[in-house]
């Protein structure tokens, strides 16, 4: 018998092990749901799968009685556009601040300490300030996401920029490059794949801020809906919404990873000069 640390699952076993916990969880849920519904058919806490399917149909495939809109899709579109805007702004700002502080000591001297302090402010604590300053509309939600994840991206990009061997920067200068040429031609392309990685890592926090902002003040969105129907204990809507958010997060993560491999093949193959 090999030591545990040397034991690796083969392909079939691995697939089995991957699926096992999911299957167990579903079985556990079904059993609990059935047990509760048997005692009280009107129980709302653990709806059966058919009730959940009804919930999904009602939200996604039937127009809302009040507004005539398909709420599920409208919520998805609003939430994704807020998240996308916030993350895009954070990525652009984080890239610029990170590269400038990572490459230029004269800027790093005053920007890095400032960045550290800003990154320690809990973004949710300033949400009321954002509502006061930017109003209750789209802007305050987008700004919350941007404020929440920009410092993380900026600091990550700063570190990645500093990781690029100094030899490359010296070499570029001996070839005649000026500062902006070094930043655009040498540093930027090498930092871009790291930026996509940083965005992937910060998306979890992005969703958190999105749902928090929607829960507090909104008229649509995935987070808004979950908190709205909570009043009626509508678990048949909450559960599929949570599952859908999880799926979206997973899908975006996979898409970004593949985009990275496609755009920067030298990085995916471990190019380190």
């Amino acid at each position: 018998m090999k030591k545990l640390i040397n034991q690796k699952p083969n392909k079939t076993l691995k697939l089995f092990l991957v699926l096992l916990p999911f299957v167990l969880l579903i079985i556990l849920y079904m059993a609990s749901s059935e047990a509760r519904l048997e005692i009280n058919p009107n129980d709302k806490l653990l709806p059966s799968f058919s009730q959940i399917a009804d919930g999904i149909t009602r939200m996604a495939f039937e127009p809302s009685k009040r507004s005539g809109e398909y709420l599920f899709w409208q919520d998805t579109a609003s939430s994704l556009s807020r998240l996308g805007m916030g993350v895009l702004i954070a990525a652009v700002l984080g890239l610029i601040v990170g590269m400038v502080t990572g490459a230029l000591p004269l800027f790093s001297a005053w920007m890095s300490p400032l960045l550290t302090v800003i990154s320690l402010i809990p973004p949710l604590a300033v949400l009321p300030v954002l509502f006061i300053v930017f109003g209750l509309g789209e802007l305050s939600k987008v700004v919350l996401i941007a404020i929440g994840i920009t410092p993380f991206i900026a600091r990550d990009i700063q570190r990645r920029t500093q990781e690029i061997p100094a030899e490359q920067i010296v070499k570029a200068q001996t070839l005649g490059a000026n500062t902006s040429q070094i930043m655009i031609r040498v540093l930027l392309p090498q930092v871009m794949p790291k930026l996509i990685d940083a965005v992937r890592l910060s998306l979890g926090a992005g969703w958190l801020f999105l749902i928090a902002a929607e829960a507090v003040a909104s008229t649509d969105g995935l987070g808004y809906r979950i908190f709205l129907v909570r009043r009626y204990m509508a678990m048949d809507v909450i559960l599929p919404y949570v599952a859908w958010i999880t799926f979206l997060a997973f899908f975006i993560d996979v898409a970004l990873r593949q985009l990275n491999q496609k755009l920067f093949p030298w990085h995916a193959q471990g190019g380190k000069s």
Partner: peptide, 12 residues
């Protein structure tokens, strides 16, 4: 001009 032992070329 300079040639270092390593990291002398641009990996990207």
């Amino acid at each position: 001009g300079i040639v270092f032992q390593q990291y002398s070329v641009f990996p990207h």
